[in-house]
Write a protein that binds this DNA or RNA. Structure first.
Lengths: 165, 165
DNA sequence: CGGCGTTTGTTATAGACGATTACAATTGTA
DNA sequence: TACAATTGTAATCGTCTATAACAAACGCCG
């Protein structure tokens, strides 16, 4: 029994401190760095909002996707998350071991599993979604409704566009 | 001797694929997920732009910060990056081993090192900055100048605000 | 001056996560 | 029917980060 059992920590739980009196040079003008800062702030808030549930951002995404797309294959799940098949499998294992997700054989394809939320998984996911949605709104309360929509639009535009070279 | 020496890969090099015909449910309405998508897109572009230089986003940030704040301590560097002291030290080690950064004793504080770019580190950082700035602009070419400024402003607002609870 | 908490750098260790590789089973196709 | 492609799986490796513990140096306070 470990006294200080390390709870899960998102990649960068420590908020990025704005060290006063430091010159940030070009960093403040770069979208990459600004995105990073904003995302870490979100991570921290996410962790606080879901504390004790053992959920990470990728796990949250996976549960939502499985819930909205019953029967999705592990490979496709990996594609959505941007991770390799092997990783998607471990992710699915984690859910199955906790009784949140079931693997069901597909009638027409003997290779792929179909992932489904169990009854408990549905309840769990519903509760989780409420929490995360609330957190997201709370976190963006510093923005007006118009600003929030605009931010979503710009982010979408940014990630959607393909850039040559 | 490994035949397939794995080049460094940022945490999620694989672009997050928009799987057609899939229901993303509430994810598209969440700032957290949108930020993640945009950031991964940036990671991929960053990797392409700096390929062969062995640089990662945190390393880039560190070089810029050291260049703009000569004599900064390793602890403060960690604070800027949001990582623990020990990690900042390994980061500094990596630079020192490559002759990009020098550790100099401080006259008035025998504990802390002062980090400085070496001559070669300056050249390297300058070249790197040019590349990354160009990448950042190229990547955001899908946005108008106004939109880009607005995005930076909103991101700053989002990461800056402290939220209770 | 002397003790004590604090800060810094450092080392060692452990854990989380993802990639890669290889393999078997299955499917689709030439 | 042979062969390429896809899926899940297992084993292994590498990277990154946190934690804990320690020594040296600093600052403060009695």
């Amino acid at each position: 029994m470990r006294k200080h059992a390390a709870p899960y920590r998102p990649r960068a739980l420590t908020p990025i401190a704005r060290v006063p009196g430091l010159d940030y040079d070009v960093l403040d003008e770069l979208l990459g760095y600004s995105l990073r800062r904003a995302q870490v702030a979100m991570f921290v808030a996410f962790d606080k909002a879901t504390r004790g549930m053992g959920v990470t951002p990728p796990r949250f995404t996976a549960l939502v996707i499985i819930g909205a797309n019953p029967g999705i294959s592990q490979t496709d799940l990996g594609r959505v998350l941007g991770i390799a098949r092997s990783g998607a499998m471990l992710l699915a294992d984690w859910f199955v071991r906790r009784g949140l997700v079931e693997r069901r054989r597909r009638p027409n394809d003997g290779r792929a599993w179909g992932l489904h939320l169990s009854r408990e998984g549905e309840r769990f996911t519903a509760r989780l979604k409420r929490r995360v949605i609330a957190l997201d709104l709370r976190r963006s309360r510093c923005l007006s409704a118009r600003e929030r929509r605009e931010l979503l639009r710009l982010l979408e535009k940014l990630s959607g566009s393909r850039v040559e070279a």
